[in-house]
Each structure stands twice: as structure tokens, then as C-alpha cells.
Nucleic acid binder design. Structure first.
Lengths: 334, 334
DNA sequence: ATCGTTGTCTGCAACGTTGTAAACGGTCTA
DNA sequence: TAGACCGTTTACAACGTTGCAGACAACGAT
């Protein structure tokens, strides 16, 4: 059996509460007692029972991170960072996958794990602002990515409009004129896609260009990008394409190359997310890099604030930095 | 405040224990009472408090999955499957990343989360059989991948020797004669790498060929593969390469293409793991596909057995199926 | 000498749940 | 009709922890 406070107390010749005080860093414990208790803790290899502590204190030290799909590299890279940062605060991260399905997102949001966690970081895809308003669960929550909170929840994301504008402007600066986009979504709920589309269109009109084509996708995997690019090539082929994320771009790249087109010579390609794959594709992938570490750190620290100050401080709506990383898929010399 | 059993009991006009019985599916409850209790549960939106339940019952319904790094696609794909399968049993999965570092693996193995979890699935990289023998923590554990348990723990993995043999034999069948491998590891602990190397060598000697070259790597990321391939090209270039995983292969592919070599014409390439990236690279990547769904299901069910039967049933050592998937990187017509 | 103050330590109760055992009312059997 | 039996329901205690209130000793100020 695992040792309890009681065992440590008997071993050190003090009361249970004193051991608890030592464990919790309560200051008014004499150095002598403290040493004796610590020795007993070490000897018995005592570890606090988290269930009991949680039951008593209402805190579990566990936070949830809900993302659509870990097998999308952007989310697994983000998860890696979040776990790292949370670890520094002594928190354990529990990951929920929603597959971007509205039903699962509602489930997660409405507190299916509420008993287990102190708070959650949530990266919704299909959820509507109404869904969020209808939320009754009180678990503190920080939104990542989609700006659908309507100012009712803490939120951190890149400025998608500005980032998409930057990406598109880069293509324009290469001298391309028939610029297409891949990644729009029919579902009116897909706020991120909508914002990137808006940035794309604004950049084109700023440059005095008209939109060459926009391809819808139903999901953001490689296969969707490959298939969307095939549709674009069926019509009047573009000379540059902005893909709303890197996996779409890698799928599109595959289609371009297998159609015998050269990248960037015939078609320049830019993605979004800066996932590791894009650094090793051929050609390597130009992309917009959101500062994932910054997002993870900010998200966790927003949650920490929310957890400590139960007060009604107004929710914050923060912006993460992004930058353009130029690689071979838009290189000029090629 | 969240409703408790007590609130539901009062609302339904029964005792706390009766509500508990209904919640837990205890059979001897009259249909009438059951209906009334269920109505009260629904109305108050009662959800059991997991901390209390865990404290009382000693079970948390949470299992840990410890892997080196989620940003390695193989592990994120595996994690996705494990979460799915665990969900069917009503379990929540908590993910620990070890970075393949021995110290972190020891930490995880020795029960750092023991208070929180009922059992764990562990995919070690750097751990030695001695580390495992020195383990004192009693949390049930199932090993994935590395066969270092020495028969003391449940274990599921593909037959790495046979799989590597299959991969190498495929290259031989293409008519290649200068066949190299990428992915050996200096650290004697890396059992998986060792087994794949053994299968590689056995296949070559079965074919009457001698080993062209073997490149060591320190890690299994794309960058390591790219760098290892560069070293191979410095010497007498191979006409085929077996990479011990797909990310290594994609890195190697990058180096080959940027050196102006054609794949598979000049160099045929085969990987291991069947990650999604390999289906969309150019050329697409031939690979050995371990049955990840099978691994996830088996691992979770091994753990379930171990959890229910506290008895000393002998640990099982199981083998997951694998198959060869031929794609462009070893296509014959090219 | 008395009183309040400070620092250290302790006992008690409670967090919400479930296992155990026992109570209750009814039906069946002798 | 008494006793045994069964299905249903209940009270109680315990899981290991921490907040609270207070006990106790030592000390300084009056």
C-alpha cells in the first residue's frame, strides 16, 4: 500500500496536519520539525494522493487541451509546446480530440471532463458563437485560434487577416497575377478559413488584381489539398496558390508535381502553419509561421490568471505574432 | 455548485445510496424508483464527481500513454488510435512525452503520475532492461514497441526483424545491389534499431549480398535522415536505401533530390511506419505499415485484462501484423 | 506578575463517493 | 400463522486530504 500522510506522521512523530503543512510549504514550521518530516517523506517515498487532495481542495492540477486531431502536425506541435509550458507550472495536460465535429466539440465544451480538470484550452473548429453562449459549464476556458467567443472568453490567436494578407502580397511581389487560394470552407462557421479568405481578397484588391480562383475543401488534410488542386488544374491553371495551411499545400504540391508542373517556376506555392514537413519537402515550402511557443505560453498563462483570480476580470483577446518564411516553393531564382 | 448524489436523492425522494445504485447500474432497483431517479439525474444534470469516486474506489478511469514525441507522426497517429479505443471503454488518456530521454522515461515509469492513473501504455526508447527490473512502482504497464521487458511485462510490437527483412528483400527484388540502411543507433539500448538492422543484414546475406553501408543517426527526425543521407552520398553512393522510419526516409529523400538524384531511378527508397506524409511526398514513399489500429486495440485490451484480473497471470508478448506498401519510391517502371 | 502577541503545532470536520451489512416489506412454504 | 427467503432500500463508515479554529509555549511590553 502507498504511504499516507498518517504513515509519515507516525514515522516522524508529529501530527498528520503538520506533515500536510510541510508538504504544502506552510511557512510556520520549525526547521527542526521540517527536517524530520522531510526525512520521513523521503524514506517512505510518500506522494500525495491526488484524488483526495482534489476532492478536498477542488483542484486537480490537470488541464485539458481540446484540438481537432493530433495527427494534423500543427496541433501535435502545439500540443507538445502546451505540455512543456504546463509542466513548468506543475500541471498535467489531458488531450481531447474532437475531429472538428460539432457534436464532439459541444461535448467537450459542456464539461464532459469537468470533474477531472481545473480548466481547458480549446481549439474549436465547428462550434458557433451561439454554442458558446449556450454553454452552462463553469470550467475556465481559453480559446485558441477561432475568434468566436465574442469577447466572453479569453482568446489567443494570430491575426489571420493580416497573415493571409502578408502571404498573398508575397505572391504578388513575385510578379504572379493568376493567384488562387485553397482552403475556403462552405460551412459558414469556419471562422479561420473565412478570415484567411478575407485577407487573401483584401491583398489582391490592394494590388489591383482580381481573384483567380478559390477552391473549397471539406477538411484540412493533405488529401483535401491534393484534390482541390486537381480541381483548379481542370480549369484555367493559376500561377500561384495560397493554401490556408501547410498540409493542404503539401497535398497541392503533390498534385502539381504529378501533373508535370514545376514549383515554383510554373506555380508558386505558399502555406500556413510552418509544420516540420514543409522544411523537408521538395521543393521546401514557403509558409506563414505563427509563433506556436508564444501561443502555448500565453494560453497557459491566461488560464493560470483565470484560475487564480476567480474575480470577474474582463476576458482578454490577445494576438500572437507571425512571420513569413520564404523557402523554395516561392524562390525567385528558380 | 455542481449537484451531488445528495441533491439528486432529495429531489427524487430516495436515499443517496439508491441514487448511487442507479448510477452504477446495480440490478436490484425497482423500475419505478429507477425512472424517478433517472428523471432527477437528468433534471439536475448530475455528473458523478470523479475525484470522490476515485478516492473511494481507487480507480480514476484515466490511463497514461507515454511516447517520445507527439510531433513524430507515427506517435501522434498511434496516440489518436489509442484515445479512440480507450474512449470505448470509458477511459480518458493522458499523454506524457519523454523526448526519448532516459531520465524522463525513468520518471514516467517510476510512477510520477501514479496517483492519477490506473495504468499506462509505455513506448520507451532509451530505457534499459535493468531500468525496468529496478522499477518499484506497481501501476500496471503495457510496453509498446521496444521488447525490453524480458517477459516481465505485457508487450505488443511488430516483428521488427521480419519487417526489416521484408523491406530489404523488396529492394533486392528490384535488382538493386548496393543497398544501404539509415537509422542504426550507437546507443546499445536502442533495441528497435538493432532489430531492424538485424533483419536488414539477414535479408542481405540471404540474398548473397554484402552490406553497402549503414548510417547511424542520433534521433529519428527528418533532419537526421537528411544528414545521414548526405554522409552516404559523400562516399560510394548506394542504389537503394532502407530507412528505419518514414521521417528519416523523407529527410533522406530531400537530400537525394537536392543532390539531383532521381528516386527511384538512381536510388530506391523504402521507409517504415506508413505515416500520412509518405502518401503525399513526391515520389510517394514505399514503406512497411505496422497495423497501428491493431497495436492500439491490443495494448488497451492487455491493460484492461491486467486491471481487472489482479491475479498473477503471466505477461503476454504479442506480435502485431505488418505489411509492405509499394509506392513510387521503389516503383519499377520509373 | 499580568496580559497580549507571535510562532508552532494539533484535532476536528468535511469534500462526494461506494462497500458492507443490515433493515424492511412482501411472498412462499410448511 | 410462523418462519424462511427474496428483492429492494437504507444507514454508516471509510477513502486521504486540507481549512478552520484553537491549544500551547515562549516572549516582550506594561
Amino acid at each position: 500500500m502507498r504511504p499516507r500522510l498518517k504513515d509519515v506522521a507516525e514515522h516522524a512523530g508529529v501530527s498528520i496536519k503538520t506533515v500536510s503543512n510541510v508538504v504544502n510549504g506552510y511557512p510556520h514550521v520549525s526547521p527542526d520539525t521540517r527536517t524530520r518530516v522531510e526525512a520521513a517523506i523521503a524514506e517512505l517515498r510518500y506522494q500525495p494522493n491526488l484524488s483526495a487532495r482534489n476532492l478536498r481542495s477542488g483542484r486537480s492540477g490537470v488541464i485539458a487541451l481540446a484540438v481537432p486531431d493530433l495527427s494534423i502536425p500543427y496541433f501535435s506541435e502545439l500540443a507538445t509546446k502546451v505540455i512543456e509550458v504546463a509542466d513548468l507550472r506543475g500541471w498535467t495536460v489531458l488531450i481531447d480530440q474532437t475531429q472538428g465535429e460539432r457534436r464532439k466539440e459541444q461535448l467537450v465544451m459542456s464539461g464532459i471532463r469537468a470533474q477531472l480538470i481545473d480548466g481547458m484550452l480549446f481549439s474549436p473548429l465547428a462550434l458557433t458563437p451561439e454554442d458558446l453562449r449556450a454553454r452552462t459549464d463553469q470550467t475556465p476556458m481559453v480559446l485558441l485560434g477561432e475568434r468566436i467567443g465574442g469577447g466572453t472568453l479569453d482568446h489567443i490567436a494570430v491575426d489571420n487577416v493580416a497573415a493571409a494578407h502578408l502571404a498573398t502580397t508575397h505572391l504578388v511581389a513575385l510578379g504572379r497575377r493568376r493567384i488562387a487560394a485553397i482552403g475556403a470552407q462552405r460551412a459558414a462557421r469556419a471562422v479561420t478559413a473565412e478570415q484567411r479568405l478575407r485577407g487573401f481578397r483584401r491583398a489582391l484588391s490592394d494590388a489591383g488584381l482580381s481573384e483567380h480562383a478559390v477552391a473549397d475543401v471539406s477538411d484540412y488534410h493533405r488529401a483535401d489539398g491534393a484534390e482541390a488542386m486537381a480541381r483548379l488544374l481542370d480549369g484555367d491553371p493559376p500561377d500561384a496558390v495560397f493554401c490556408f495551411n501547410d498540409t493542404l499545400a503539401l497535398g497541392a504540391l503533390r498534385t502539381l508535381l504529378s501533373h508535370g508542373l514545376r514549383v515554383p517556376r510554373d506555380v508558386a506555392l505558399i502555406g500556413f502553419d510552418d509544420i516540420e514537413d514543409g522544411r523537408f519537402s521538395t521543393p521546401t515550402l514557403t509558409t506563414i509561421a505563427p509563433d506556436k511557443a508564444h501561443i502555448a505560453e500565453t494560453a497557459v498563462s491566461l488560464l493560470a490568471t483565470r484560475l487564480s483570480a476567480a474575480g470577474a476580470e474582463p476576458p482578454q483577446d490577445l494576438c500572437a505574432p507571425h512571420r513569413l518564411i520564404v523557402r523554395e516553393s516561392t524562390a525567385t531564382g528558380a
